[in-house]
């Protein structure tokens, strides 16, 4: 392990150790934060008992659908905008300002249009996450070095071969950062929606536990959501690393 990695590990362990010690000695009241080990324990108990299984399934499937739609759709729309500059010029100000819009203000409208249940949440999360993927696709395609495209011309690659062998790999780093953002935004979209108006799902259970001062359940659930997000990001990160190594970077 590198020196920086080692120090990082020490810093993280020291941080959680300090929180643990402060919680166990009662400096930090358990009404505010419970000890990290207690969070893990709460999460394990919750998973083992299976009481949250329905909510977990509901939230994760919503997030999964939103994620899939926004990644595929965002990539496709990004490509369309890239090939049609007039369209892109029109939508550029919209895309640039998109993430400063208050999406959740439109949530009630989605409920009226799509009814109660998972559908408005999925739509909200997809709308929220897709633009990150569009922007990443555009940046990725914009930044393909000219040299590579000229090389493709020289080798007389067909359009498909050029896209598959040159353009996609060259744009991959940006596509991956778009992918990671799309995952996070899908989670935010679904869980924030469940916080505000929903009667089931992990977001609702977290809000419910908060309202009932049930800190153990709340922290257990929060830890669970964060763990899933972290694991997913690590998987993408590992895949990215492997791709980079294959190219000798």
């Amino acid at each position: 392990m590198s020196k920086a990695g080692l120090i990082r590990l020490v810093v993280l362990v020291a941080f959680f150790g300090a929180v643990e010690a402060l919680c166990r000695t009662g400096v930090i009241s358990p009404k505010l934060v419970i000890a990290p080990t207690a969070m893990v324990e709460a999460m394990v108990n919750m998973l083992a008992s299976g009481e949250m299984n329905d909510d977990i399934r509901q939230t994760l499937s919503s997030v999964g659908i939103a994620m899939g739609l926004s990644i595929v759709g965002g990539f496709a729309l990004g490509c369309v905008l890239y090939w049609a500059p007039p369209l892109r010029r029109t939508f550029d100000p919209f895309l640039a300002a998109y993430y400063s819009l208050p999406h959740f203000a439109f949530y009630p409208l989605l409920i009226v249009i799509f009814g109660l249940g998972s559908l408005p949440l999925i739509v909200l999360a997809t709308l929220f996450a897709m633009v990150a993927m569009i922007l990443a696709t555009l940046t990725g395609l914009d930044r393909i070095p000219r040299v590579l495209i000229k090389t493709a011309r020289m080798q007389r690659l067909s359009l498909l071969a050029e896209i598959w062998h040159i353009r996609l790999p060259a744009a991959a780093p940006h596509l991956f950062s778009g992918l990671k953002l799309a995952v996070t935004y899908s989670f935010i979209g679904v869980i924030a929606g469940e916080f505000i108006v929903s009667t089931s799902g992990l977001g609702h259970q977290i809000a419910f536990a908060y309202d009932n001062f049930d800190n153990r359940t709340m922290y257990g659930l929060i830890l669970f959501v964060l763990c899933i997000a972290i694991v997913f990001n690590l998987l993408v990160f590992a895949y990215e690393r492997r791709l980079a190594r294959q190219r000798g970077l």
Partner: peptide
């Protein structure tokens, strides 16, 4: 990596914690 990790977390889940703190 720590900052990037925090950046890519869905921070909305931490909102109850912020409210408590």
């Amino acid at each position: 990596p720590i900052l990037v990790g925090i950046y890519s977390l869905p921070k909305i889940t931490l909102y109850p914690v912020i409210l408590l703190l």
